[in-house]
């Protein structure tokens, strides 16, 4: 990763994360096909909803005949962490047009958000529309294409977990988390380490009460609040 915000460097920066999209996209396609969705429907879901983990939940809820209101509410709750990510990112696009803001927002994902937060450390705190939009578009197309491939494979393979591909995304978050911690100079490494360490018991004990998808939003909010308190306590 370097300080260039061009289309070329966006493509380069996105390459390592593409594994994650392909791995999970194919897994999702297989799961959708296994639950009785057609290839077209599975691909449409990736194009219209475009929401990673929420899509897995959506398929399982559809399969058991859940009413539409409950499905929409679950998907909203699981994705409500997008509000936090969009709020954080929007601060870097205040000078861009409303249209560009909406375009960036429409296709933002956990991964492109994490990538952009890392990029900031190399660009003196700047992001460009060109760079972010390229990252987002690439991710969107790869996600839809892998869903389609997965849904087609779904007739042959039934167990997508076998190959270790589902770990691609986890590995990516581990990598981006580490890179973020060593590169973000605005918060001291000590505080970052403490906050990350606190997240582990928060997630562990939180899982007793809340399902894992909703838990991410809750523990993120708690983690941020603790971070602010710690930062002031140490300064």
């Amino acid at each position: 990763m370097n300080n260039s915000l061009s289309v070329d460097s966006a493509v380069k920066d996105t390459m390592p994360t593409v594994f994650g999209y392909i791995g999970i996209g194919i897994s999702f396609g297989i799961v959708a096909a296994a639950s009785g969705m057609s290839v077209v429907m599975a691909t449409l879901m990736s194009l219209i909803v475009y929401a990673g983990s929420a899509q897995f939940i959506l398929v399982s809820l559809l399969a058991i005949g859940t009413p539409i209101v409950s499905i929409v509410l679950s998907v909203f709750l699981v994705n409500s962490r997008m509000i936090l990510m969009s709020m954080t990112t929007a601060n870097f696009f205040k000078k861009n047009s409303l249209f560009e803001n909406i375009l960036i927002g429409s296709l933002i994902t956990d991964e492109s958000f994490a990538l952009s937060m890392n990029k900031l450390n190399f660009t003196d705190g700047k992001l460009s529309f060109k760079w972010f939009n390229t990252v987002n578009l690439l991710a969107y197309l790869v996600w839809a294409a892998s869903t389609m491939v997965g849904a087609m494979l779904g007739r042959i393979i039934s167990n997508p977990e076998k190959l270790g591909l589902d770990f691609a995304l986890v590995a990516m978050f581990i990598g981006l988390l580490y890179l973020q911690m060593i590169n973000d100079k605005s918060i001291s490494l000590k505080i970052q380490l403490i906050v990350v360490a606190i997240m582990l018991p928060l997630v562990y004990f939180g899982l007793i009460f809340i399902s894992s998808d909703l838990l991410i939003l809750v523990v993120t909010l708690i983690g941020c609040a603790l971070g602010v308190i710690l930062k002031h306590a140490f300064n």
Partner: peptide
């Protein structure tokens, strides 16, 4: 507050994968 979102959300997305939830019991 939002400046902590990147590390907390990435840590949460990682740690969530280290456990198998069993609502009402320790994972």
């Amino acid at each position: 507050f939002l400046s902590f979102v990147p590390i907390t959300i990435m840590a949460a997305l990682w740690f969530e994968n280290l456990f198998k939830p069993d609502i009402g019991h320790l994972p």
